[in-house]
Amino acid sequence: MTTTAEPGAAPAQAGPDQDALDALLAEFDAAVAADSRIEPRDWMPDAYRATLVRQMAQHAHSEIIGMQPEANWITRAPSLRRKAILMAKVQDEAGHGLYLYSATETLGVSRDDLLDKLHAGRQRYSSIFNYPTLTWADVGAIGWLVDGAAITNQVPLCRCSYGPYARAMVRICKEESFHQRQGYELLLALSRGTAAQHAMAQDAVNRWWWPSLMMFGPPDDASAHSAQSMAWKIKRHSNDELRQRFVDICVPQAEVLGLTLPDPDLRWNEERGAHDYGVIDWSEFQEVLRGNGPCNEQRLERRRTAHDNGTWVRDAAAAYAAKHRKAQA
């Protein structure tokens, strides 16, 4: 049985002299190089731990902030079938957030700490969720493009060097494929529907296409964390590689949808065997990242409010548990 370290139970790293440390590092490097998995109680470099916490926390936060733009349409879903699908999807995102927080906790940080950092704006979530869902078609565009980009990013994470993260991702990827398909199907129904529905779908794709491409992160030469993460096998492919893969997947899918992708420079490059695409507006990305996106404040405020409104409930359950444990003892 592989045990999960409880918060704070990570092995103390102070103490060993330089030789011992070098030996541990060599062992760690060898394990990573051999594609073995690093488990919670293994020795790991502080920077590796910190990188994992940053990335996994951001991933978990993205799942729960990501509930908002879609939950925005649960009460207005235009058919009961769509309502059930959307509810199940938003619920999955809560579940994915839970899997990821649990996996992060194996590194010795508690979910409460992580949430505090999110609420204080000290940890990030994916910038994509700072864009608004203005119409029903946005639910489809999120499923097709945003979840599609997320899956492209996440499938390689199933082989990530950190065991608990990789295991969480296996579970998540299995569930995500339903998300992408329902989004595509939703857009297809709109595209083949009335003129107004078709226009709604095209408008949504126009708004979500570029932000989806930005989800893969800055170009490789400008990415702050990429090289080290690749070496540690936390990351398996570069940002640009994954972005290219995504573009190549989407182009034929858009054709079947009967929708266009809003990029006049998008065309097949015979020589490269891949699609060329236009220049991404990274200044928009940086602005949204800095907190100036259309919904940054709204999303965080909603999250904080929900958390604050829940305090008395969490306290009540904790008090009840304490009382009844005492009564049993």
Partner: peptide, 16 residues
Amino acid sequence: GEPAESATGGQWPLWE
């Protein structure tokens, strides 16, 4: 037996 971090102050313990 008893969770080391008891459920106080709104902090709920972790379960496997």
